[in-house]
Design a protein around this nucleic acid. Structure first.
Length: 645
DNA sequence: GTAGGGTTAG
């Protein structure tokens, strides 16, 4: 036997306890519990001891003797044994126990039947659970709650709701367990509010489980105000409730509030865990704040530098902040990689304009034995589409089901529509849309619309735009796009018609906005908004740069202007595009050599794209712009998108 | 005996 060294006197008792436990385990391994005696009392003692010791083989052996001799233990012991079976995934053994306690001569208590039901539910054997429920003589709140939880986990939402109503009709009052279970099945805001009312009436609102379930559900329906109110009304909270509320804002694209809550959480004395940090990373990622992201990275390192989920979240953060160098570095450092790690990198590379590297990485992934999933294939097709690799894209699309077993979904069709559309094969793209299995959605039509704009096919564009507006009549972007397309072909009457419709429906064009991070502060530039304290100076600088760039061949690309004006007048709106202000501000305040990183809410226009390319060369500065769909890395007069976006 | 939070997509 190994000697045990004791370094810290304080831990002597713990060490002795550990040694005794090890000795006991060692003894059991060498001398499995003998079953020589068949006297009922000894057998029962042996069975009970095995159950509490969680020695499943010994307990099962004793059970078979007990079955033969019709000897019974108490319901608590059987319940312990079933829990042990559940913990070890021993379904067959659990079924034997079930058979035993239901054989003639024994009357299982309600809580034992509940334990059995719960066990079946956790093993996804809902029919078995329901059979027990249907036949049990007495059902208490736990019996009903167990079934509701089982249906909720299986996403059988209607069934869970039906059981809630039935239990109330049967005179059983739901408790906090019932409500936190049933909340998982609230598939609509009205029902959620109704349940919330019942919770309040029952005085169960203060339970942390119920609260986090409520907050989580409000968040799922985008009801952040309700989520926050529910959170703020809470007197006591725990780490999970904090994580829920932070996650709610992070997932609903309100990174700012998520970060505020994170600060509040730390002030309240809570320590972050894996879930907190993943949400915080997601918040940072959504806002593309690289410097802040690096700060959170330090927190991650302190927590656990080998955590797979956090590693994946970090990869995504660096990709979405447009820093592929960091993403690549982190990726190679990861000790463990899963399909999400690979997919994040493949999608990140593709979106950042490194399509060929993305495809290469896919080969490495396959060679490593990792199997692609639905999202990996989205990345592959996206890479093909943005690199103009029509044949390769077709190949993967046509073979993805037979080779990888992945049925093409809307997103894959979307990439193919994009691929064909970009390559000018608009008719092929339309044909594909009409044959797609899941049916086109707003995004599909918007993709086609974008391709029509690229190839100036106004007839098809109008068709696609109308399909988009049928599905989303509030979509200001589509009205603008359609209006742009008409403007490009000098169809001013049609431009006016579109605007009239917009006015009629009171649809406002989303103003362009660009953000830049300077000294951990975010500076926002919004079109026609002069609230930035240095706006006048910035505008003067923009004009200065435009003049200097003209000398090296910069001519305004006016084809993106959404206005019925010509000549000099036309240039003004372009001058105040938010990304130009943000780029120039970056040049003014960031140290020389530092990459200028900008995130914007609408897609970059051709004029700003050219401006950034020429400026990157003239000032010898790297510029990265992230728009809602993809990234542009400007360096030495070229862009990673190859002017193809 | 029954309950709550986090990572990859156009």
């Amino acid at each position: 036997m190994k000697s045990i060294s004791i370094c810290n006197p304080k831990s002597i008792s713990a060490t002795i306890a550990f040694a005794l436990q090890s000795l006991l385990q060692f003894h059991h391994q060498c001398h499995p519990t003998p079953l020589q005696s068949h006297s009922p009392n000894t057998l029962l003692d042996e069975f009970t001891a095995s159950c509490y010791r969680k020695d499943l083989p010994a307990a099962m052996k004793a059970l078979s003797f007990m079955q033969k001799h019709q000897i019974w233990a108490d319901s608590v012991t059987y319940s312990e044994l079933i829990k042990c079976c559940l913990a070890r995934g021993a379904i067959q053994e659990a079924k034997l126990v079930h058979k035993h306690v239901f054989s003639n001569g024994y009357n299982p208590k309600t809580f034992l039947i509940n334990t059995l039901m719960n066990m079946y539910a956790k093993f996804n054997l809902l029919n078995e659970a329901q059979e027990l429920f249907d036949e049990m003589p007495e059902r208490n709140v736990v019996s009903w709650t167990t079934m509701i939880g089982a249906f909720s986990n299986a996403k059988m939402n209607d069934k869970a709701m039906e059981f809630l109503i039935l239990m109330i009709r049967n005179g059983i009052r739901p408790n906090m367990f019932t409500y936190s279970s049933v909340l998982g099945s609230c598939n609509g805001l009205p029902i959620l509010k109704q349940i919330h009312c019942s919770i309040t009436k029952a005085g169960l609102e203060s339970d942390v489980y119920v609260r986090s379930a409520l907050i989580g559900k409000y968040s799922k329906w985008g009801e952040l105000q309700n989520a926050l109110t529910t959170f703020n009304e809470m007197e006591t909270s725990d780490l999970i409730v904090w994580n829920t509320i932070i996650g709610a804002f992070a997932q609903n694209n309100n990174g700012d509030e998520a970060l505020n809550l994170f600060k509040r959480m730390k002030k309240s004395g809570f320590m972050s865990d894996q879930a907190t940090l993943t949400s915080v990373l997601r918040a940072v990622t959504g806002m593309a704040l690289l410097e802040l992201g690096r700060q959170v990275h330090v927190h991650v390192l302190k927590y656990n530098n080998q955590d797979l989920i956090l590693g994946n979240a970090l990869l995504d953060m660096y990709c979405k902040c447009g820093s592929m160098e960091d993403a690549r570095f982190e990726f190679t450092k990861m000790v463990e990689k899963d399909v999400i790690s690979w997919s994040t990198m493949i999608n990140g590379l593709a979106q950042n304009g490194f399509s060929h590297e993305a495809l290469k990485m896919f080969q490495t992934m396959e060679a490593s034995g990792s199997k692609p999933n639905y999202i990996t294939m989205v990345g592959i097709l996206f890479a093909c589409s943005h690199a103009g690799l029509v044949e390769k894209g077709r190949f993967y699309f046509e073979k993805m089901e037979s080779i990888y077993g992945i049925k093409p979904g809307r997103e894959h069709y979307g990439c193919m529509v994009d691929l064909l559309g970009r390559a000018g094969q608009l008719n092929e793209a339309v044909k594909l849309i009409h044959t797609m299995e899941p049916g086109p959605d707003v995004v599909t039509w918007r993709t086609l619309l974008s391709a029509c704009g690229m190839h100036r096919d106004t007839g098809l564009a109008a068709y696609a735009a109308n399909r988009v507006l049928e599905l989303d009549p509030e979509d200001s972007g589509t009205y603008s796009l359609l209006s742009n397309i008409y403007a490009n072909t000098q169809r001013w009457e049609d431009v006016e018609k579109v605007r009239k419709t917009m006015r009629g429906k009171n649809v406002k064009k989303e103003p362009g906005c660009s953000w830049i991070e300077v000294n951990k502060e975010i500076h926002a530039f919004i079109v026609r908004d002069d609230s930035h304290p240095e706006i006048e100076k910035i505008m003067r600088e923009v004009n200065c740069y435009v003049k200097r760039l003209r000398e090296v061949g910069y001519v305004h690309d006016t084809s993106f202007v959404l206005q019925d004006v010509e000549g000099e007048q036309m240039e003004d709106p372009l001058l105040c595009h938010s990304e130009k202000l943000a780029i120039v501000y970056g040049l003014m305040v960031l140290v020389k050599g530092k990459t200028i990183r900008i995130r914007k809410n609408i897609r970059i226009c051709g004029d700003c794209h050219l401006f950034a390319k020429l400026l990157a060369k003239m000032e010898n500065r790297n510029i990265v712009i992230r728009d809602p769909i993809r990234y542009h890395h400007f360096q030495g007069g070229v862009c990673s998108c190859g002017d193809y976006w």
